[in-house]
């Protein structure tokens, strides 16, 4: 039984590392900040989650702790990427677009700028 858990854990770690690598490649290849955010957020979330879960499978006494970390990553990662994307837009970083499709533009002009709120 322990043997199988170990194999599952190693499989998860390899799977996670693969997606972390793909996320890094995405950050390297994408044309602008927002698309890098896309690749970075998704790949690093699944990659880190499955890597830590794999550690939990190899060391079963750490399983519950690694589950807490997985839940924390699933909540915190999208929040931070949301904050990054929003603040980038508010600081006039225009997204790269092949054809102009920007529904947020009209709203961002009306809203108070970040520095005015401080």
């Amino acid at each position: 039984m322990m043997e199988y858990l170990k194999y599952i854990g190693q499989g998860l770690i390899v799977f996670g590392s693969l997606f972390l690598f793909l996320g890094a490649l995405g950050i390297f290849r994408m044309p602008d900040f927002y698309n890098r955010l896309q690749a970075g957020t998704k790949a690093s979330t699944l990659g880190a989650m499955s890597l830590i879960l794999g550690v939990g499978f190899i060391q079963p006494e750490w399983m519950i702790k690694s589950l807490i970390i997985v839940v924390f990553i699933a909540v915190a990662n999208p929040l931070s990427s949301h904050a990054l994307g929003r603040s980038a837009y508010k600081n006039n970083l225009k997204p790269f677009m092949k054809k102009k499709m920007d529904a947020y533009e009209k709203v961002a002009e009306i809203l108070p700028k970040e520095e005015d709120r401080l």
Binding site: F19, L22, G23, L25, G26, R29, M30, P31, D32, Y34, N35, Q38, A39, K42, A43, P95, F96, M97, K98, K99, K100, M101, D102, A103, Y104, E105
Partner: peptide, 17 residues
Amino acid sequence: VAKRVISPSLPINPGIV
């Protein structure tokens, strides 16, 4: 994301909806 990153032509058409 993996599919988009690996394919050489980088098939993206970004925008905000």
